[in-house]
């Protein structure tokens, strides 16, 4: 498969066209706003916890390229029901996968492996990680703006 078709797999196209958990959440426990000034991508992330502290609901709203929308959409599906520590671990695995730090996508990332093709497109890594950085900002209560330009290398 070519690098381009690795990047725009059917799952990615589908999640871009019909993003899951998309829209505004009423009365979230936490929100954070993410912004990629390079391409104008902007998303708001909403989070709710259950009494045990697990992520019970995640939603996102905003606009962006296919990679950032699909990545955020897949992420919301995947982190539901997980603890903060589990989300953090997942983020590290995902981040390693898209920044080429690992050869094969780790099993932990599951369906998110469809985004592994991003590693061939360094200028698009920020798109794939925007949702994740915003999620972490929401998780850790850092409710300001998250900009991909504050994240150094990506």
């Amino acid at each position: 498969m070519s690098a381009l078709s690795q990047l725009y797999q059917d799952v990615v196209i589908d999640h871009n066209r019909s993003p899951r958990n998309f829209g505004r959440m009423q009365e979230p426990d936490r929100t954070a706003e993410g912004y990629n000034p390079l391409c104008g991508d902007q998303l708001i992330l909403y989070l709710r916890f259950d009494p045990e502290g697990y992520v019970s609901e995640v939603m996102f709203d905003g606009s962006g390229c296919a990679i950032s929308v699909a990545s955020a959409s897949l992420m919301t599906e995947y982190v539901k029901g997980k603890s903060v520590a589990e989300v953090e671990h997942l983020f590290k695995c995902f981040h390693g996968m898209v920044t080429n730090a690992v050869d094969e996508p780790p099993a932990t990332v599951g369906k998110l492996a469809v985004l592994a093709g991003v590693r061939e497109f360094p200028s698009r890594v920020k798109c794939a990680t925007l949702g994740w950085h915003t999620l972490r900002a929401a998780l850790y209560g850092d409710t300001g703006h998250v900009s991909t330009e504050d994240k150094g290398g990506e």
Binding site: L4, C39, C65, F121
Partner: peptide, 20 residues
């Protein structure tokens, strides 16, 4: 989105700018 267009065009050798 402009960034997707830019990436896809590039794979065909066409260099354009995408952004603000």
């Amino acid at each position: 989105h402009a960034h997707d267009i830019g990436t896809i065009l590039d794979s065909g050798g066409v260099a354009v700018r995408a952004g603000h």
